[in-house]
């Protein structure tokens, strides 16, 4: 995989954030995902960053997209590395190189269309009726779509969808 200069810079920033890592495994030892699913190991992710491994594999679905974002590793890392945040940064890069799981495309599309992630299903609305809950004021979709446009979300989303075809 070839990375653009911009992405290489972003990668360098990531290296700077993790360079104090000495592979003690505290992150893995407390990781709820690693405990159940050994292919995702945050220590191994750090190891690859330290080694300057910028192959596509590191952005693979078996790697970073398994992180639940619970921040347990960040809380406990003895070297004070915000591992969870670093992995999130990596996900941002992964999106740029069109390496994202389908679930995220669905979610972003939902926000683009409705402003929220959960669908207003008929059964949900029926439950609300039954519970006599008030209607929730809907968000201004022109605003949401404008913001998603100017922050480049729509373009990225389209690129991902194009790629999926």
């Amino acid at each position: 995989m070839t990375l653009t200069t911009e992405l290489k810079e972003e990668f360098k920033d990531l290296y700077d954030k993790v360079k104090l890592c000495y592979q003690c495994g505290t992150c893995a030892g407390g990781c709820p995902v690693f405990k159940q699913y050994s292919s995702f190991n945050p220590r191994r992710v750090m190891e690859k960053l330290l080694a300057g491994d910028i192959s596509a594999e590191i952005f693979d679905e078996q790697q970073i997209w398994y992180c639940t974002g619970c921040y347990t590793c960040s809380t406990r890392c003895p070297q004070g590395i915000d591992i969870c945040h670093v992995i999130n940064d990596m996900k941002n890069i992964a999106v740029k190189i069109k390496n994202a799981p389908p679930g995220i495309i669905t979610e972003m599309t939902a926000i683009l269309e409705t402003g929220i992630t959960a669908a207003k299903s008929t059964s949900a609305l029926r439950k609300r009726d039954k519970l006599e809950l008030p209607e929730i004021p809907p968000p201004d979709m022109t605003e949401i779509q404008k913001l998603m446009e100017v922050t480049g979300v729509i373009a990225k989303l389209n690129a991902l969808k194009e790629d999926a075809k």
């Binding site: 495994g25 505290t26 992150c27 030892g29 407390g30 220590r43």
Partner: peptide, 22 residues
């Protein structure tokens, strides 16, 4: 075991050490 434990827990009787054998 080469790994720094992440946590020590208890169920009231025993202790449990969570650690990655790296």
């Amino acid at each position: 075991i080469r790994g720094r434990p992440a946590e020590v827990e208890t169920d009231g009787t025993n202790l449990y050490v969570q650690v990655e054998d790296s």
